[in-house]
Design a protein around this nucleic acid. Structure first.
Lengths: 297, 297
DNA sequence: TGGAAATTGGAAATCCTGTTCGAAAGTGGT
DNA sequence: ACCACTTTCGAACAGGATTTCCAATTTCCA
């Protein structure tokens, strides 16, 4: 619906609005912005002096484009602190027949900025394509980080620290995307003087390594979906050998959870299919610090 | 907004659906995914075998999340090539009362991945000591990320992408703290179909590996201070063999810079001696994406 | 300060969307 | 080949969302 603007309805509504309002804002000669960037340009030009409520709307549109794109008129109005009809009026000032039409601008923008994971790797049309992706990646990382602290399971965290600190030897396990995390965990643990084994499967010796795990050892496993790596297998072996399993994973569906004594959920955002590791690393560092602090005493 | 799912409505609808469908798909025990990542985890787990139309839906959801978030049910159905009611059924299988509820998942995801004026810098007091370090680590990561975009050297970035895209084979080099970064770089490059060699020095074969570098190859080196690792040596060898050297490092004093054709400075913050890798990873991902985009044509 | 014009708030009316339901078409097993 | 069951389709219905309209309020100018 909203994606396709109907030219017929627009022009008639436009005329009607202009006729009725006489020399009001609509007559100031704003042409209908055809893209989100055009709209931003108009809003930021500063030449427009809106009355109070409409200014409020403009500010909200500026600051929360995604809310506008995703929400219904009622939701947007509530968040902006205005009446739904005010939004419609705002849209009409810019020559649109109504809010839905106007909203299409925002939807298109969000859609366009959202590189679909699908086939066509659109040739970078814009010169700032590189910056845009970097920005998106930074945004994904920050989103991941921002989610950590809300609803963080401190209890599990404390239990994990205690178990790790009490363990004889710590095995750190993770493959594919999780491997960078485990590599850094292992490095920092060693730097803190905490003995550990990074199960990296070099030489395909991982199974033999975990075959040596004893009941006084702990396993720190990191695993993300899809859970098709060897990590679940390795952890299963460790579990059979009565090691204490501690897991960092990204959903409650992880096959590691039933095997784990404690676990933490860390959800990473992605941008265009490239996933952040920022949150997992931060949580991991916190674990290492906690363990080092306990051991150090 | 739609983000707030109504628990009351959900449970009753859930029960009703389960009762009616008997031992159909809905009874297989899928719990309602609460986040988009969880949903992806389920879909990618491969354990689910949908009938034809529903599989079609699953594939479309996977490939076009933004269309789902922004469109109406009719638009989504048309693009996916199914009936609107099929989408409703799909949503109900996962325990949602209908499509609107289900769509909220996608809206939240798009909103979350959208770098937007994040609201108020919530200044909640730390209720717990363990949280303090986590908070510090998150802060360090965010500080690192925040510094990237200011003063980012787009020109160098573009040159690096061009060189990498034109290279015959890419050698990725990094030790110690930089290793997690290079490991992830190598992984994502491979996933994008870009051939590369991760010089990990397993078996102390790194020098022999770089001894094979040719003049049409490129080296992507990541190095942080103190520069006392093996990385400068390896890069020096590569430089002698006329390979094109590209560097990500954390200061202009890095010994790699004189050897490099282009370089990027990425400064990471630390907290209590634990250094973030968030910025380096974000920049690295951007590089990979750029290379994949160029090669993809 | 008075009055006219512009702006705003709110409710009613309309349009459209999402959901439900029964029938038809597939599918697999005996 | 038949039967039971699942899946898909399409239309009717219900509910919400958007728009319109008018009264109330505010602003601005004389």
């Amino acid at each position: 619906m909203s994606g396709a603007r109907k030219p017929s309805g627009r022009s008639s509504a436009d005329e009607a609005a202009t006729r009725k309002r006489g020399r009001s804002l609509a007559a100031l000669g704003y042409i209908q912005p055809q893209t989100y960037e055009e709209l931003r340009a108009v809003l930021s030009s500063g030449t427009v002096h809106f009355p109070k409520r409409l200014r409020q709307v403009a500010i909200f549109l500026w600051q929360h484009p995604s809310e506008v794109a995703l929400g219904t008129i009622a939701q947007v109005a509530a968040q902006a602190g205005v009446q739904p009809s005010t939004l419609v009026r705002f849209a009409q000032i810019f020559g649109y027949s109504g809010f839905s039409d106007f909203q299409g601008l925002f939807k298109d923008h969000v859609k366009g900025s959202w590189p679909e994971g699908r086939g066509e790797p659109r040739a970078e049309a814009e010169p700032h394509a590189a910056m845009h992706f970097l920005h998106g990646m930074v945004g994904a990382s920050q989103a991941s980080l921002g989610r950590i602290e809300a609803g963080f399971d401190i209890e599990s965290f404390e239990k994990m620290v205690a178990t790790l600190a009490g363990a004889d030897l710590i095995y750190v396990i993770g493959s594919k995307r999780a491997f960078p995390v485990t590599a850094y965990l292992s490095l920092t643990l060693s730097q803190q003087g905490v003995r550990n084994v990074l199960v990296d499967n070099v030489g395909s010796t991982a199974l033999d390594q975990v075959g040596c795990i004893g009941s006084r050892d702990a396993v720190l496993a990191v695993s993300f979906s899809p859970y098709n790596s060897i990590t679940p297998d390795l952890v299963a072996v460790a579990h059979e050998r009565k090691a204490r399993i501690l897991t960092i994973t990204d959903s409650t569906f992880s096959p590691l959870i039933p095997l784990s004594e404690s676990w933490l959920e860390v959800v990473e955002s992605d941008f265009a299919g490239f996933r952040s590791l920022a949150a997992s690393l931060a949580v991991g560092m916190a674990l290492v610090q906690g363990v080092a602090a306990r051991r150090g005493t």
